[in-house]
Structures are given as structure tokens and as C-alpha cells.
Amino acid sequence: MSVSETGSATGSDAGSDTEHGLTTGAVARRLGVSPTTLRSWDRRYGVGPATRAEGRHRRWAPGDVAMLEEMCRLTASGVPPAEAARSALSTRSALSTRSDLTARSDLTARSDLAARSAPRAPLPRASAARQPGSGNGLPLRDVRLECRGLSRAAVRLDGPALDVLLREVVADHGLVTAWEEVMVPTLHAVGRKWESSGDRYVEVEHLLSWHVSTALRQVAPAGPVAVTSMPPVLLACVPAEQHTLPLEALAAGLAERGVPARMFGAAVPAEALDAAVRRTGPVAVALWSQARSTAHHALAQHVAARSFGVRGARTHPVVMLAGPGWAGRPVHPGMLRPGGLREALDSLTRLFGESPPPVG
């Protein structure tokens, strides 16, 4: 699913809101909190749905969701839960009053021709501080709905909720979509927040990065891992590069496809990488560089020139220049520069004589 398709999914949720209300699980995913937290707020502070379906199942109407958004906004900014609950409940009460007044006005207008023809004031809009992703949240711009729940959980430092949300987005959309359309935009939003707030929110970035890394390492292979005599793909950051998450996403994708790989992580010294290449004779070596200042073109050429095997049948590894740091320089023969995670996975899969899985 692309970012542009988010609107249709949101529209479906909206219809459910109007007709039956959302379940606790659906609201929890939207807000980036755990269902247990919502139930606890209901029991302790009365921040629950205004009406309940038969069997006492919680069903959350639009006004209830607006109340919970206010509760999340206030608690994320440091307001004690009890005080935040009082304010959130008053928010729902105000919205309900406005709705009643609007309904009465409509009835009067239908019965009075003069009133019906008179201009009507627009419906009240929630203030900017109550919109999703605002206030003390992250600058998310136009992204998938899942990003907003993930960002709220990150700002609250809610590790358990991050684990649940990340597992769900990978299960629902697949690794590549989860990485490119949910994890990366949220990580970038954290970075923008950090840069614009005087070194605040560093803890948010560290916590989110850790849980994203955990989710990537938990991606299970699509089937039983086949035993193969084929040499592996080596994954390493260039010597001055510390950003490993993109390589971890690549490692997870290779694991899903059953492609053997060895992950060496951040800032691998040139001598250590050379030794690993000599010892394993890899099919390919993916070198990650986040910025042009870390791109090590001489090292990439050295790895590409490495040869191994018996005389007369010696082979060279394919070098994959991964990351934006390699931009602006020509790609030498024997090297690849993918445009994204899916392209990188497809290219490496083909090296093993297998067709990439269909895009779905």
C-alpha cells in the first residue's frame, strides 16, 4: 500500500466510527497506546466511552477518540494523568454540547424557511494543539496513519506499545512497506524534532531506534532456512559510519528470502572488512554510507577488486553501494547502487539465481 492509499483506509475507519464506534484495539493502534492503558484510564479516571455496546464491550465514538487524543497530548507533555483526565473529559463534554446545539439548530432550520435560507456558522474545529501529531508530538507531515501512533508511543517513551505497533505494521504490510512508509518517516520526524529543539528528545530517538532494531531482528524467514553451499552476502558500514538501521532492514529482508548473510554492523575498519572478504569469499558486499563525508570509494574499489577461488576460475564479489552517501559519483563495473530497500533485495536475490518474490 502506498502513502496515497492511506486516505481510503482512514475513510473506512471513519465509517466505523459513525455507525458502531471503534474497538479498544483499533483506538489503541490509532493513538499509539496499549489497550491495557486505555482500560486503565477508563477504570481509574473515567476516561471511557460515553456509551457502551451490549455486553459492556467498549466502543469508542468520534467524541471519545477526540477525548483520548487530548489525554495523550497532555500526558505526553508531562501533565499528571488525573489532571489530564479532567481536562480531556471536559473536552468531550464541550464537543457533545456543540453537537447538540448543532442538531437543534438543524431541526429549527428545517421548520423555518427564513432560518433555513440564512447563512449558517461553520461547525467548530478542534484547536491545532488537539490535532494528531501536534503539540509535543513529532513533525510527521503527510504520512501513513500508523506513523502517528508510533510517534505518540515514542514521545511517551512507551516501549511495550512500540513493540506491539511495530510487530503489527510488519505483519500487516510486510517488511519493505513497514520500513519505507512507517519506520523511516517516523525516525526522520524524531531527527527533525531533535534538531529543532536544542538537543531535546534524544531519548526518544534512542528508544525508537532500539525498538525498530528489535523489530527488524525479529522478522522471521518466509519458510524453513535452506542449507546452502553458496557464499553469503556481507553487510557492513564503512569505517566512519555509525548508522546501522538501514543495513539491519536489509539483513531482515535477506533472512525473509532465505539469502545467507553476515552482518558486521557499524564502522567496520577497512582491515577487518578486507579480512572478512578474504575468509568468506562472499557473493556480494553491501557497504552502507549515510553521508558523503563517510563514503569510502577507495575501500569500495578495493573490495570489488578482491578475487578468490582456484586459478582460472577466480571470482570477484559484487559491491553494493547502499545509502545516500554514495550519490554524485559514477558507479564502477561490478558495483550496484540500489534506489531503495526493495531494489537492493531484488538485486541480491538474483545473484543467487532466484527470482524476486512478486510485489504484493
Rank of each mutant, 00 (worst) to 15 (best):
E248K: 12
Q242V: 04
L150I: 14
T24C: 07
A103G: 09
V310T: 15
M320H: 06
A267Q: 12
G135N: 02
G137Y: 15
R141F: 01
R98N: 05
A327T: 13
V190A: 09
A270F: 11
P221W: 02
P80Q: 13
R44E: 13
C72M: 08
L140N: 05
A153L: 11
Q218N: 12
S347K: 06
A61N: 05
R110I: 12
L321Q: 09
P282C: 05
S105M: 11
T6S: 06
R278E: 10
S134A: 02
R98Q: 02
L150S: 07
A276G: 11
R311K: 07
V283N: 01
A267T: 11
A344D: 00
R262P: 06
E181I: 14
L166C: 03
G48D: 07
S209K: 04
R217S: 13
F264S: 06
W210I: 07
A153G: 09
R156S: 01
A286N: 06
V238G: 12
T186E: 10
L157V: 10
G46N: 03
Q218D: 07
V164G: 07
Q131V: 13
W210C: 14
V27A: 01
S96T: 07
H332F: 03
V219W: 14
G312W: 13
T186N: 15
V143L: 09
H188S: 07
T97Y: 09
D163A: 05
M230S: 06
D13Y: 08
A126Y: 09
G191R: 09
R98D: 00
R86L: 12
T36G: 15
E5T: 10
A53R: 01
R314K: 15
G32D: 06
V238W: 12
L162W: 14
L234Q: 07
Q242P: 07
H297R: 01
P80D: 12
H211I: 03
A261D: 03
A327I: 12
M1S: 14
G21Q: 04
G7R: 13
G174D: 04
V259F: 00
H297M: 08
S307W: 08
C147F: 06
T10Y: 15
A14L: 02
A115C: 08
H243K: 00
E54I: 11
H211W: 03
S213G: 09
S93Q: 12
S2T: 08
A286W: 05
